[in-house]
Simulated scan of single mutants.
Amino acid sequence: MKVRKFAAIDIGSNAIRLLVNNVIEEKGKKTVFTKSELVRVPVRLGEDSFTVGEISEDNEERIIKSMKAFRLLMDVNRVEKYMACATSAMREANNGMEIIEKVQREAGIKIDLIDGKREAEIIASTDLKQLIQKDQAYLYIDVGGGSTEFTLFNEGVIKVSKSFKLGTVRLLNNMVGDATWKKLEDWIKQHTADLERISIIGSGGNINKLHKMSGRKEGQHLSYVWLNAQYNFLNSLTYEDRISELGLNTDRADVIIPATRIFLMATKWSGAKKIFVPKIGLSDGIIKSLYFSAS
């Protein structure tokens, strides 16, 4: 038996994450991927990038310190290979490239700037295909702080995908107009109109948290009715109540509401009855991509 270690760094608009995975190889058996370590740092880059166009000195310092810590954690875990990806907040910041170069100099970590299409491709390399049945259609939705990726699967393959600047941090800062919502509605209805059976596959920390709050077991789906009721319930509480009564993290207690709204609207416009939450995302896709490219 051989145990290899790979790491993924996801620099998002709401948080920065390090995932370290054990990859267990044993002759005659299927390769097993297990989580070894997950660190999440609530650096909300989107509030800088989307509102003032650049990342503040304070958040720049927090990014560099986080990356130095991640570098040490990868070293002590003896990580064989890593990949660090930054999405919309870093892409749209005027000083994004400057910070990326500084991180490489000071922390020794190379960061790749990826767009929505590349992000969808990486996520598609996860165990997503094991969930997808060929006789059904699925709308995969990955909600982020700056953007949301939509990918339509039909007959087991990707038919179309699109990224919309419709993220939780943008919504919190009132930076999404009616025109963006209308474009999303038109896109979903256009591509799902002829599909009789369609389900949602949800990705991201917010839908994972919602699934956990529902009390459903792993593999059990959420319904539109439950999600709508939960949306109304969350909206009835103050930000402070969501933290004290529901135990939500300070950087989750606000973004969970706009995230729920995105899933609700997409479910309504697509006519989907079920929302599956496999708890996979960009970091999991990075690990799989690294492993298969290194094998």
Results as ranks from 00 to 15, higher is better:
Ala137Trp: 00
Val143Thr: 10
Thr126Ala: 06
Glu80Cys: 03
Ala120His: 08
Ser203Phe: 05
Arg40Val: 13
Asp241Met: 10
Val3Thr: 15
Ser163Lys: 03
Thr151Asn: 07
Lys209Gly: 04
Lys165Trp: 10
Arg71Gly: 01
Val43Ala: 09
Ile207Arg: 02
Leu282Met: 11
Lys102Tyr: 01
Ala259Arg: 01
Lys183Met: 13
Ile16Asp: 04
Ala93Tyr: 08
Leu222Cys: 02
Asp254Cys: 00
Ile99Tyr: 06
Ser283Val: 04
Met67Gln: 08
Ala86Ile: 06
Asn94His: 10
Ser295Asp: 14
Phe153Gln: 01
Trp226Ser: 04
Ser13Met: 06
Ala124Gln: 13
Arg197Glu: 14
Lys81Gly: 06
Leu72Val: 12
Ser88Leu: 12
Ile100Ala: 04
Ser214Trp: 05
Lys65Arg: 12
Arg242Met: 03
Pro42Thr: 12
Gly53Trp: 05
Gly247Ile: 01
Lys268His: 11
Ile262Leu: 01
Arg62Asp: 05
Leu72Phe: 11
Ala229Tyr: 07
Ile280Glu: 09
Gly219Asn: 13
Val76Pro: 08
Tyr291Val: 14
Leu72Ser: 14
Arg40Gly: 08
Leu264Thr: 07
Leu210Ser: 04
Ile141Glu: 10
Ile11Pro: 08
Asn154Phe: 07
Ile11Ser: 15
Ser244Asp: 09
Leu195Met: 08
Ile141Tyr: 11
Ser283Leu: 03
Phe164Glu: 05
Asp241Lys: 09
Phe263Leu: 06
Leu290Trp: 09
Pro278Asp: 05
Ala15Ile: 10
Ser147Phe: 04
Glu57Lys: 12
Arg170Ile: 01
Leu222Trp: 01
Lys217Ile: 09
Ser293Cys: 11
Gly205Thr: 03
Leu73Val: 00
Ile16Cys: 14
Asp58Glu: 13
Lys110Val: 03
Lys288Met: 15
Tyr239Leu: 07
Glu155Gly: 02
Ile207Ser: 03
Ala137Phe: 03
Arg4Lys: 15
Asp186Asn: 15
Ser244Gly: 05
Val32Trp: 09
Gly156Thr: 00
Glu240Ile: 00
Lys159Ile: 15
Phe164Met: 04
Lys162Pro: 00
Glu101Pro: 00
His211Ala: 09
Asn14Pro: 11
Ile280Ala: 02
Tyr224Ile: 00
Lys209Asn: 14
Ile16Phe: 12
Ser13Gly: 06
Ser56Gly: 05
Asp115Phe: 02
Ala69Met: 15
Val176Ala: 13
Arg44Leu: 08
Met67Asn: 01
Gly285Met: 10
Lys212Gly: 14
Val277Ile: 14
Asp251Ile: 11
Arg216Pro: 00
Ile64Thr: 08
Lys288Tyr: 15
Val277Asn: 00
Lys279Gln: 14
His191Pro: 09
Ile200Glu: 00
Gln136Phe: 12
Gly204Arg: 12
Ser293Gln: 15
Ser36Ala: 15
Leu38Arg: 14
Gly215Leu: 04
Val3His: 14
Leu210Ala: 02
Asp284Tyr: 10
Ile122Leu: 14
Asp112Ala: 10
Lys165Tyr: 13
Ile9Asn: 11
Gly156Trp: 01
Asn59Asp: 13
Ala137Lys: 03
Gln136Leu: 09
Gly28Pro: 08
Thr250Ser: 14
Gln230Asn: 07
Phe33Val: 14
Phe33Cys: 06
Glu121Lys: 02
Val79Arg: 02
Ile64Gly: 07
Glu61Gly: 09
Leu184Gln: 08
Leu18Trp: 08
Leu19Gly: 06
Phe292Ser: 14
Asn14Glu: 10
